[in-house]
Design a protein around this nucleic acid. Structure first.
Lengths: 229, 229
DNA sequence: CCGGATCCGAATCGATACTG
DNA sequence: CAGTATCGATTCGGATCCGG
């Protein structure tokens, strides 16, 4: 438990001392989606060694970023403190910046439910959501499924099996569509390909609902992709 | 030159792979102020070992974040690429977040010209600047001096001895004030103390110009300080 | 002085095994 | 499920050295 110092009296330095060590911000990324148990975190970050996960959770608690909460019935979860939740701006900024350098998935790289959830939050266009009718998208990507709902400027993403089941049921007043995608979904969000081409190339397959709603998806979620290096 | 992988196809992960290693974001912080030579960086980050600085600069070049530019006369500087400059959002978000946890300076912690410059950029209120008359503040803090100019919503901070000398001369149409401060300047920016109390307590001493302009300083620069842990 | 490269001990990380 | 314990592999830090 080092808390390695940089020796400067500066906000950026203090931030790096608190959450700058390896894996720390990825734990925060996952906890921004919701409280998680130790094993959820371990699964969501498949390459993290268990001793490191354990160390980081302790350090983050010491930093006032994470809280350990015993569950009513059994077990316990980790959740962000209010101060920890304020890291959302940092995570979103990093996600937006890193998105531009993502390229194609490299060997062995996986996509997790929590990372995709945060990516969608980053890409969400609240103004577009206000202009468009409420819509629920059921997205399948590999073996993960997310229910993504946009309504009047708000976004809400749930992984079935998590959170109150009621929130998973499609709202009666929203239009629904269900589709399967692959990592090529990034190209759609980046605008490298349009919705009709995504359907044509099989980047995205509609399983249920109106295929035209894919266009709405691409209007709601977009991020710049160009790297002007 | 590791480029350690986290094994996920995610924007946050890619960002951490590119700029997540120790010292990397602090090099970026300093380069956001302007191009710097190797020895400037070494001085601005007094605790960085030279081999690490050297490694990071190579990695950041490989990542397309930093460029090595030979100087016309002699020597060379490192500067951010356009993509590297886009890290400003990340640095500002981290600075804002870390500011709240700064507390009092700890033993041996120093303040550098570049870190203070970025802190002022983070705290700058462009709206307030538009409402107020143009003003130039000459700030002394320890052995560093900055000339800080606010005019019509824009901020510009220069360390005398750096950059074109013309930009250091006070603009004729701006009101001028010169003051000396200590680390307690943070309390003024945080709003923990007001301008008149800062003067009374000696947190800040006016050397030249109208002491009332200190009030304008505190209107132009403020950051939240509370940590709701 | 500038711009590093090299060497070495100390600290951290990663992989695996194991435990209450 | 929620972690410890151990140990080899990496990385970091500090000091020194070197060519222009």
């Amino acid at each position: 438990m080092a808390a390695r110092n940089y020796g400067q009296y500066c906000g950026v330095v203090r931030a790096l001392e608190l959450v700058g060590e390896r894996w720390a911000l990825l734990i925060v990324r996952d906890l921004l989606v919701g409280p998680r148990r130790y094993s959820d975190l371990k699964n969501g970050l498949s390459r993290i060694p268990t001793n490191i996960l354990s160390d980081r959770l302790k350090e983050l608690q010491g930093a006032g970023v994470v809280r350990r909460v015993p569950l009513a019935r059994c077990g316990l979860v980790y959740e962000l403190t209010p101060y920890g939740r304020e890291l959302e701006d940092v995570i979103l900024a990093m996600g937006r910046w890193g998105f531009k350098a993502m390229g194609e998935p490299r060997d062995g790289e996986e996509i997790t439910a929590d990372s995709l959830t945060m990516a969608l939050r980053t890409a969400f266009d609240a103004d577009a959501s206000r202009r468009l009718p409420a819509t629920a998208f059921t997205v399948h990507l590999g073996d993960i499924t997310l229910v993504v709902r946009s309504a009047r400027g708000t976004l809400d993403v749930v992984a079935p099996g998590r959170g109150p089941l009621s929130t998973v049921l499609p709202a009666g007043d929203a239009e629904n569509v269900e589709f399967a995608a692959g990592p090529g979904l990034r190209a759609l969000i980046a605008g490298t390909i349009g919705p009709e081409q995504a359907l044509r190339d099989g980047v995205l397959q509609v399983l249920d609902g109106d295929p035209l709603l894919v266009e709405r998806f691409s209007a709601l979620f977009h991020l710049e992709a160009s790297v002007a290096a």
